[in-house]
Design a protein around this nucleic acid. Structure first.
Length: 682
RNA sequence: GCUGGCGUAGCUCAACGGUAGAGCACCUGAUUUGUAAUCAGGGGGUUGCGGGUUCAAAUCCCAUCGCCAGCUCCA
């Protein structure tokens, strides 16, 4: 008897009955058999020891496939758990999943026990010897709690593990061990003496797990619930080869150098002070970059018929009651407190004096824009009306979540609100998605993930209104052919949203852009427009920001470019380096000529040697260093060197400027317009 | 906010119960320099802040603030 299975290329393979995935690989080629990590049978990942049935569609997965790496890391998590059990008596295992760049295992330590990074070498040594022992990963399925493997599993960390018990109870609630035909399978994997509950699959044996490394240790809670047991989370990573592991560690090292908090200090962009946590101080160079971002966005807004406004930083509390922020966002808001001097005793200060009209600092810009809309009657002919503001907002952030420029307590949003009719929602959102992609593209940020977030538990507005808003967003996404991820229950309290998550150079993703549909706020503020029918209607409002926070976006691009900003953003675009003090006058003339043409240029007139000046310019990531000495002065030329070390040789100021890429926002915008028009013409 | 780690000169770090130090940066002088560091000198610290233990605290203990990592939350 034989069976026939189909391969991804459409071909079929005849195999003897009882063949395993491994046998199929062997039948194709001995090399493939050696390289096979796991298989995918009928779209389900399985071990190479999985038996095949007639008609199965099978794929052999080797280390080239991301699934293989994920499997490897999952297996490494098991190996680490086994090593920790040996090393820390009384430790109890909970869960050990993989992450984007490794794995972790959450472990409950017995009273008094500790685990720190200083224990890593011992654990790693045990893992190494386990890998060397090369025990196979053996899958066992348990039909009942009486089965031998189940008893082994329970016993492995002392037999009284409440976390395991809770996991098993969860499985039982889903019908496990019931003996029913459709009961979920409960599988375990054994490696040597170690057993763990696991869906699988796993690598064939522990010998694959030679290139693992423990990374760090952190706290976590059982079920991510702060009221539950404190666990210790041990992070590790694993690769198929020593070279891959090496490359990964090298990447982390490089990423550390790109940290915007480090570069912010080194490049003199900004600083923080202890007494004002989360409030960045932008230095002149940082401000230049920041203004560049803002100018670029303003130009983009102009192209798309936005109207820029400015609204107060502080508004009466009553406004925040109307908007709902007081009820839903109170903890994150800053409130002003009136202070008075006692009339009789001037030294005595009444710290928290009563006020008829208490004030609050705005955490969002929308109420101000609603008030501008409301100032006069609008016709449907004016819609969509796009009101924009580079609006600074203040939000209280708990100490544990502040993080450099990425998460601050005062920041500017490139905020705007579109007031439109329900019919216009979809086209407005379609326009915005394209708009945002164009902006990110200018920075070379191309790895963007869209997320659609729906109604949260704490929210305002009727079911019907939410449904309409959610479907409008969905349709705009699908109409534009964009792929996205659904985030149930993650919307703002006033409406659903689309978020733009951008992957930075460290591989972390940051939420930048956001588009939120809001049927509630216009109603709360009593906004109206006169429709074609002559009747009054409530407009729909779309909240949107592209950078999100200017501060955060600044941080992101600082890391993305490793501080080497593109020419148009570079705080110092050209540094002129005279060979000696004899040529300082000539250098000043060159710098002045460059500044006249709109470039940010200065002269390094220190008494240092050229090598030192070159080094300074390079380390500050100045795009161009211009060397001038006797030869240049004589010929009225300049000698240009790029920050990457490339020598552009001798040229004149005019020629140099003429061949530069866009060095100002207007030039950038006009080039962008050219390419957009070219695209449209095609 | 929770858990853990860490706070020493502008920055990176040393000293780990016994007189706070180095490199870089900064300032001064000499030098006048041709593509990633010229030499010499100088200023700069109530060791985050507040208590405690001790003859003596940067060092040990407590508390607090900040930073870092993770969790949770978010632009």
């Amino acid at each position: 008897m034989s069976i026939s299975v189909s391969l991804p290329d459409g071909s079929a393979k005849e195999l003897p009955e009882g063949s395993l995935v491994r046998d199929l690989a062997k039948a194709i080629s001995p090399r493939l058999a050696k390289a096979a990590v796991v298989g995918v049978v009928n779209d389900q990942p399985v071990d190479v020891t999985h038996p095949l049935s007639d008609g199965d569609s099978v794929q052999i997965v080797t280390d080239k496939d991301p699934l293989a790496l994920d499997t490897l890391r999952h297996s490494a998590a098991h190996l680490m758990a086994a090593a920790i059990l040996q090393e820390v008596p009384g430790a109890q295992l909970t869960i050990g999943p993989t992450t984007d760049d490794g794995f972790y295992y959450d472990i409950h330590l017995p009273e008094g026990a500790t685990l720190s990074e200083s224990d890593f070498p011992r654990i790693e040594a045990r893992m190494k010897s386990l890998a060397k022992a090369a025990a196979p990963f053996v899958r066992c399925e348990a039909e009942t709690k009486d089965s031998e493997v189940y008893r082994e599993y329970v016993a492995i960390d002392g037999g009284h593990n409440p976390f395991k018990q809770e996991i098993i109870e969860g499985l039982e609630a889903n019908g496990a061990f019931s003996g029913n035909a459709d009961a979920p399978q409960v599988s375990f994997y054994k490696t040597g003496d170690f057993v763990d509950l696991c869906r699988g699959p796993h690598v064939p044996s522990a010998k694959w797990l030679k290139h693992t490394k423990l990374m760090k240790i952190a706290g976590a809670y059982w079920r991510a619930d702060a009221s539950r047991e404190q666990l210790v989370r041990v992070y590790g990573t694993a690769f198929f080869s020593a070279a891959d592991l090496e490359a990964h560690l090298h990447l982390l090292e490089e990423a550390k150098k790109r940290d915007h908090r480090v570069l912010g200090e080194k490049l003199d962009l900004f600083h923080f002070v202890e007494d004002a946590p989360g409030f960045p101080f932008l230095h002149p160079k940082g401000t230049t970059v920041y203004n560049g971002l803002m100018d670029f966005m303003r130009a983009q807004l102009t192209r798309r018929d936005y109207h820029e406004v400015r609204t107060p930083l502080i508004l009466p509390e009553s406004t925040w009651h109307t908007s709902g922020h007081y009820d839903h966002y109170l903890e994150n808001m800053f409130f002003t407190k009136r202070k008075l001097r006692d009339a009789a005793v001037p030294e005595k200060i009444i710290a928290d004096a009563e006020e008829d009209r208490p004030m609050a600092v705005k955490p969002m810009n929308c109420p101000g824009h609603l008030m501008i809309y409301k100032h006069r009657m609008h016709s449907h002919k004016e819609l969509p009306l796009r009101i924009a503001e580079m609006g600074q907002v203040h939000r209280r952030e708990p100490s544990g979540v502040r993080h450099g420029m990425f998460r601050v307590q005062a920041f500017v949003q490139d905020d705007a609100h579109h007031f439109c009719t329900p019919d216009q929602i979809e086209s407005e959102i379609g326009m915005l998605i394209d708009f945002f992609f164009e902006v990110y593209g200018v920075f070379g940020l191309d790895d963007i993930r869209l997320e659609l977030s729906t109604r949260p538990e704490k929210s305002i507005g009727s079911d019907e209104v939410w449904e309409r808003a959610e479907s409008a967003l969905e349709q705009a996404l699908e109409g534009g052919g964009r792929t996205y991820q659904l985030n149930e229950g993650d919307g703002a309290f006033y409406g659903p949203k689309i978020d733009f998550h951008i992957r930075d150079s460290l591989g972390r993703t940051w939420q930048c852009g956001t588009i939120q549909v809001d049927f509630s706020m216009p109603d709360r503020f009593g906004l109206e427009y006169v429709g074609a029918d002559g009747a009054r209607h409530t407009p729909v409002m779309i909240h949107r920001a592209c950078y999100g926070s200017l501060e955060r976006f600044f941080g992101i691009i600082t890391e993305h470019f490793a501080g080497a900003f593109p020419l148009w953003l570079a705080p110092e675009q050209v540094r002129v380096l005279p060979i000696s003090e004899k040529f300082v006058d000539y250098a000043n003339g060159v710098a002045k000529a460059l500044r006249t043409q709109g470039l940010r240029a200065r002269v390094d007139d220190s008494d240092e040697r050229l090598g030192y000046k070159i080094r300074g310019a390079t380390m500050h990531k100045v795009p161009y260093a211009i060397v001038v000495g006797a030869a240049e002065q004589e010929a009225n030329t300049i000698n240009v060197r790029c920050r990457d070390g490339e020598d552009l040789g001798a040229t004149t100021v005019d020629e140099f400027v003429a061949q530069l890429p866009a060095f100002s926002v207007p030039r950038l915008i006009s080039r962008l317009a050219e390419t957009t028009q070219a695209d449209a013409a095609q």
